[in-house]
């Protein structure tokens, strides 16, 4: 039997006065999928997340959430939870009181459910502390716990790893992937491409309210095309000559002026096959390759390319 997607959006439009926040956005998120939303500031991510959470209504287009069309009222079906712009928590209440109040509002069991949610995000030890003293990371985790309380089928998270230390981030990632494994659809936004790469199977890239890419993460990486690589060799001058002679490789102006405290670094630009050819030629020319790494990660490079934020040669250098 065909199962309806958790989110199905077509030609979604939303404006605030003269400002067009979303301009014909399509979005598909399947159950059990972790879907990343990425885009520069002002791209429309928060507005889109707000629509999914029922905080605003679209001016036009179609939006179906958990198989139900969302109309012109501030309303979404049960089974949707999450937060945008940070978890809304009350500093004068304890972690447990915050969750209990929320559970009570939504008509859930405020006892066992709260304890389970706190345990899931690793906050059992501070359950009875007022959250006034919580770090940003702890608040993020409590926000996630609040969302988990309602046993959502669609979880909408805005920058869930914001403020988390590596251990906390790992914990949150584990929770999210666990939920997805249980069939929960997760839509999350992040500015951290490594987070998206670690969590998401698909991403949607937004720029000025439009979708500029939507699809698997692996496909997004391929969109990056030519990348800048930092090349550290035993002979920078020789390496530069070889690079200039290699088809498909460019040395951006000033690329050999990049300095590191310990050595000269050459920046070269090219697609993966050309870079592989450069390595072969360097070896033939008896220039030892000590380090070769992209200046910007492929996903990030793809993001920059798609959103029109590619740095100039001068910026690279």
């Amino acid at each position: 039997m065909h199962e309806s997607p958790a989110v199905r959006g077509r030609r979604i439009k939303k404006s605030f006065g003269d400002v067009v926040a979303l301009d014909g956005v399509d979005l598909d998120v399947a159950a059990g999928q972790v879907h990343g939303l990425v885009g520069p500031n002002g791209a429309g991510k928060t507005t889109l997340l707000g629509l999914l959470l029922g905080l605003a209504v679209a001016d036009g287009g179609e939006l179906e959430i958990l198989g139900t069309p969302v109309g012109r009222t501030l309303a979404v079906p049960d089974g949707v939870a999450g937060f945008v712009d940070g978890p809304g928590l009350y500093p004068s209440l304890t972690a447990r009181q915050n969750l209990s109040a929320l559970a009570s509002l939504r008509g859930y069991d405020a006892g066992r459910g709260v304890d389970d949610a706190l345990e899931q995000v690793g906050l059992t030890d501070v359950a009875d502390d007022r959250i006034r003293g919580f770090s940003l990371g702890m608040r993020q985790r409590l926000g996630l716990a609040a969302a988990l309380l309602t046993r959502p089928r669609l979880l909408v998270l805005d920058e869930p790893a914001n403020g988390l230390d590596p251990a906390g981030k790992h914990h949150v990632h584990r929770v999210i992937t666990g939920l997805a494994a249980d069939g929960v659809a997760v839509v999350l936004s992040s500015h951290r491409m490594d987070d998206l790469a670690a969590l998401c199977s698909e991403v949607t890239v937004l720029a000025t309210g439009r979708v500029v890419f939507s699809g698997p993460v692996t496909k997004l990486a391929a969109e990056s095309g030519a990348l800048d690589y930092r090349l550290l060799t035993s002979d920078t001058a020789a390496a530069r000559r070889v690079a200039l002679d290699t088809p498909g490789i460019r040395v951006p102006s000033g690329g050999d002026r990049v300095q590191r405290p310990d050595a000269d670094v050459l920046v070269v630009r090219g697609a993966v096959p050309a870079v592989e050819e450069l390595v072969v030629r360097l070896v033939r020319a008896e220039v030892a390759v000590r380090e070769l790494a992209p200046v910007v990660a492929p996903l990030e490079a793809a993001f920059l390319a798609l959103t029109g934020a590619v740095p100039t040669d001068e910026e690279v250098s």
């Binding site: 069309p69 969302v70 009222t73």
Partner: peptide, 8 residues
């Protein structure tokens, strides 16, 4: 398009 409002 104005689909029927969801009964929240």
């Amino acid at each position: 398009v104005t689909p029927p409002a969801v009964e929240a």
